[in-house]
Design a protein around this nucleic acid. Structure first.
Length: 907
RNA sequence: GGGGGUAUAGCUCAGUUGGUUAGAGCGCCUGAUUGACAUUCAGGAGGUCGAUGGUUCAAGUCCAUCUACUCCCA
């Protein structure tokens, strides 16, 4: 066996093992119906994207789940892929086209543009997946899926056609959210509401029938004045009701528009008079419909003003706003301009304010809403943390039809053909199918593509072969529903809810309502873990413009993938946002180094023996030599295994990481290994003690493996736990029951009470060290103490562990005495400790120390006495609590009395 | 306007059916290095658990109200 280097160097280890895992096909998902299945579908990142902090956390969590499942012997599959990111990709390609060739997509034409975009995708896309490999992601790369793959595309179109046939898809002219930059409609979910600083323009319009009378009107958008077709007041508003039916002069282009009465107008908002612009506002559109008003569109799709905008024609919309204000002023119609903050919808991708715009679009009316709610409320799908259920249900309760058409070219072209020159809104003139019509010359296909989310909502189905309802594949039968989904709560509507709906409606024959059993069979996943969003240490979102996002690959290079994974996990509170601070990732790296060195120490401490299985190690444990520490550390190992199994089941990832950290560093390294150095020097006891260490290290590596796959695999082999070409991923850490069995088989009897005894010894050592530190003897290895044991049991425990205590506390001698006499000491649970010192003791300092101690313990005594003298407590509290309180009070009292006595002797 | 979330040490956070003297990591201070690890070890300082009220023998934990910050939806 090679000698282990002094500090852990992740670089070489990571690359070597990742290559071996790939070569051995470790990550391949195999359909094996004899095993329980467990699949995870990666949330497909944008194909154009690069790895960011959020991906690191999200994919670490998935990797943990899938690696643990593999260890447990499940038939596991983690399927990777990317989505085509319609708007994002098209925008980037168009931008490059514009910059490099000065062309627009229209110069190229649809076919050529898609070809260019595909080439661009193939060149720049998918970087993110190779970056994930550096993180150690154990995806089945051979099953990589892209939403524009041929088979997947078929599924997407089929879903649309099926929903059309089932009556859930319709076409219509509606108000949609229009992005002037991407020049496409968007769904409500893609619009981000942001408080925006703007101005409120107060204007006055003259009443036509009563010259000299003016109506004051407030607006944030004076550029839409040319599109005004009326002004509206609340019919119950006594200030204005007499004017309903009359007209006002619209300032520009100057014309008469009617005054209408509509209850949608809020009397208290502004002046209580609303200008009505049906083409550019949702509320106004509704008002216009009620009053039969014309829809006067004054804007081009790119956000510039069109010819109908009169004097504003040709101006960009925000320039037009300023120009409109100036114009109003010149006309004497402007009263004043006030700063004003209101909430404005922004396009998620382009980050510019959207325009409400009337256009022809395709919509999906969501099916299976009731079932989607029931799936979650009755626990067939479990959300972690559970509170997201409320958000999910609230959305379903207020659900709006989904605008799924996008005026883009990059995506799945809507599989609808219209008879040339006919009314497209008449279903008779449509051909909706995966196949074009047989007489293509008479038809033209819809120019639009589907929303990207209308492809990714099939992710759990179409990645494993779903192509149409009713048909199934081996993979679908085996892995669907998938075991868990890990994602961010920000896409609970965009993606999670829609996947649930898609599964319920499309995974099976058409049914109006579903039974619970049918729901169970159709849901895409059984659990959803919502991980928090990573922010910078000031709590801001990570963003390119702020430059506050670290480069993930740099972090991996600096801390190692394992260290980074561990660090992220240990600072990621359950479902809570995470404030990222690089310093904290170093904890993960340090932990890896600690593990590395513990293994190194094991290697240096003696020869390696048969480490090939639990029984072969347990066989080397000598029951006769089993001491207090052995019992405690092995019992702790069982407890840890059990806790880990529970925490992973419940997705308590942080507790899982911290449990391993505390056990390994605190219990094993700082105490057990240090204590065992005495025995390791003794040839009779050495091998037994090494066996215990071997067992602890083995099980610990197994438990840690899902978080830190590389270092655990490396040490697994270096310490001889696995043979060549066998991997740690195929070893089950279990919940501790295999340890219990092995101990029973080999008649190794652990004494559970030793856990408490060792805790007492640890307190004792800590007190001695503190006392020494105070007396400036901290570094002395040959201090002498006198102990007045509390009782005979304490005395036995101390003398049993004399050598260890000497080593751990730096003692050359530990004497026992009946009484401390007149010397001050430290009181701990096992007794009073007196440090022998040369020269005189600092009486004043001792007094201060003891007084502080006294103050602390006095509080406990008072609290304990109060509690026990309370009759209701004594009569109502359960017996074990009562007994505990009595014991505690007795101990506190004894300690207090001893301190008081020592203080007296000092006076 | 509606609905979440959070508030515990200087910082970031644990604290799982209410029950010892509320914990960890980092930071800070003191001390340690010739054989696992300075990516280390030992010790120390530091908290009226956001505020008020309630339930209970017992509240950081449960309930109500309030305050601050934050997210989502309108």
């Amino acid at each position: 066996m090679a000698e282990i280097p002094k500090s852990y160097d992740p670089q070489g280890v990571e690359q070597r093992w990742y290559e071996q895992w790939l070569a051995a096909g470790c990550f391949k998902g195999k359909v094996d119906t004899t095993r329980e299945s467990f699949a995870v579908m990666i949330p497909p990142p944008n194909v154009t994207g690069v790895l960011h902090m959020g991906h690191l956390l999200n994919n670490t969590l998935q990797d943990i789940m899938i690696r643990r499942a593999r260890q447990e012997g499940k038939s596991a599959l983690w399927l990777p892929g990317t989505d085509h990111a319609g708007i994002a990709t098209q925008s980037r390609v168009e931008k490059e086209l514009r910059q490099k060739e000065g062309k627009t997509r229209h110069d190229l034409g649809r076919e050529k543009f898609i070809q260019v975009a595909s080439e661009w995708r193939d060149k720049h896309g998918g970087i993110i997946l190779s970056q994930l490999q550096k993180l150690g992601a154990s995806c089945d790369w051979d099953r990589k899926v892209h939403t524009l793959d041929e088979g997947y595309s078929q599924a997407v179109l089929q879903a649309f056609v099926t929903l059309y046939e089932r009556g859930y898809v319709y076409r219509g002219k509606r108000m949609v959210n229009w992005c002037p930059v991407s020049q496409t409609g968007l769904s409500d979910e893609e619009v981000i509401m942001k408080p925006t600083q703007g101005s409120l323009f107060k204007m006055r319009y003259e009443v036509v029938e009563q010259p000299g009378t003016f109506l004051e009107i407030s607006t944030t958008r004076p550029e839409t004045i040319p599109g005004d077709v009326a002004v509206a007041v609340n019919p119950e508003d006594s200030r204005y009701q007499h004017l309903i039916g009359k007209h006002v002069w619209r300032p520009f282009p100057r014309t008469q528009i009617p005054i209408v009465g509509d209850t949608a107008v809020e009397k208290d908002f502004g002046t209580g008079v609303l200008k009505v612009t049906p083409a550019h506002d949702r509320t106004d559109f509704e008002i216009g419909k009620r009053h039969n008003l014309a829809v006067l569109d004054v804007m081009n799709p790119d956000g510039t003003m069109n010819a109908d905008a009169g004097p504003l024609a040709g101006l960009e919309r925000f320039k037009a706003r300023t120009a409109a204000a100036k114009l109003l002023e010149e006309l004497g119609a402007l009263v004043k301009i006030e700063p004003y903050e209101n909430t404005v919808g922004y396009s998620e991708r382009a980050d510019v304010p959207i325009e409400p715009r009337l256009s022809e679009q395709w919509f999906i009316h969501y099916p299976k809403i009731e079932e989607a709610k029931r799936a979650v409320t009755s626990g067939m799908i479990k959300f972690h943390p559970e509170r997201w259920t409320k958000t999910y249900l609230h959305w379903l309760d207020n659900i709006q039809d989904w605008c799924v058409s996008r005026q883009l070219w990059w995506g799945h072209r809507i599989p609808v053909w219209y008879r040339k020159g006919s009314d497209r809104n008449d279903a008779k003139n449509r051909h909706v199918s995966l196949q074009p019509p047989s007489d293509p010359a008479n038809w033209e296909q819809d120019n639009d593509v589907l929303d990207t989310w209308a492809s990714s909502w099939l992710w759990c189905l179409a990645t494993i072969g779903w192509r149409k309802p009713g048909e199934t594949t081996e993979e679908l039968k085996h892995w669907y529903p998938t075991g868990a989904l890990a994602t961010g709560p920000d896409i609970i509507f965009l993606w999670v809810a829609r996947m649930i709906i898609a599964g319920l409606e499309l995974h099976g024959p058409e049914k109006k309502t579903l039974t619970d059993d049918e729901i169970r069979a159709r849901i895409p996943f059984k659990r959803v873990y919502f991980n928090g969003i990573i922010r910078d240490k000031l709590g801001r979102k990570m963003s390119k413009s702020l430059g506050n996002s670290p480069e993930p690959l740099d972090l991996i290079a600096k801390f190692g993938a394992d260290g980074l994974r561990f660090g992220l996990l240990s600072i990621a509170p359950k479902g809570q946002d995470i404030l990222f601070d690089e310093d904290r990732v170093s904890q993960g790296r340090n932990f890896c180094n600690k593990i590395w060195n513990a293994a190194r120490f094991r290697q240096m401490s003696g020869p390696m023996f048969d480490n090939s299985s639990i029984p072969s190690i347990v066989k080397r444990i000598n029951s006769a030599q089993l001491d207090d520490d052995d019992s405690a550390i092995l019992h702790g190992l069982i407890t840890l295994s059990k806790a880990t199994a529970h925490q992973l089941d419940e997705h308590e990832f942080t507790a899982y990481a911290q449990g391993l950290y505390g056990y390994f560093w605190g219990d094993f390294c700082d105490w057990y290994v240090e204590a065992s150095k005495v025995r390791l020097a003794d040839p009779v006891l050495r091998d037994h003690c090494l066996a215990v260490q071997d067992l602890v290290l083995r099980q610990f590596l197994l438990l840690l493996h899902p978080i830190a796959p590389f270092i655990t695999e490396e040490l697994w082999h270096l310490l001889g736990y696995g043979k060549e070409n066998e991997f740690i991923q195929n070893q089950n850490p279990s919940d501790g029951s295999d340890l219990i069995n092995a101990f029973q088989t080999s008649s190794v009897k652990l004494d559970v009470s030793k856990v408490a005894d060792v805790a007492l010894l640890r307190e004792f050592v800590a007190e001695v060290r503190a006392t020494k530190s105070q007396a400036n003897q901290a570094t002395k290895r040959d201090s002498i103490i006198t102990v007045i044991p509390k009782d005979t049991k304490a005395k036995t425990l101390l003398s049993h562990n004399r050598d260890k205590l000497g080593r751990l506390a730096g003692l050359s001698e530990m004497q026992f005495a009946e009484s401390s006499g007149d010397r001050p000491g430290t009181v701990c649970q096992l007794g009073t400790v007196i440090l022998e010192q040369s020269g005189t003791i600092d009486v004043a300092a001792e007094k201060i120390r003891l007084s502080k101690e006294l103050e602390k313990i006095e509080k406990a005594v008072v609290a304990g006495e109060a509690k026990l003298s309370n009759e209701t407590f004594v009569s109502k509290a359960p017996a074990n609590i009562l007994e505990g309180a009595r014991k505690q009070l007795a101990e506190a009292t004894a300690k207090r009395d001893e301190i008081v006595r020592m203080l007296k002797t000092l006076n």
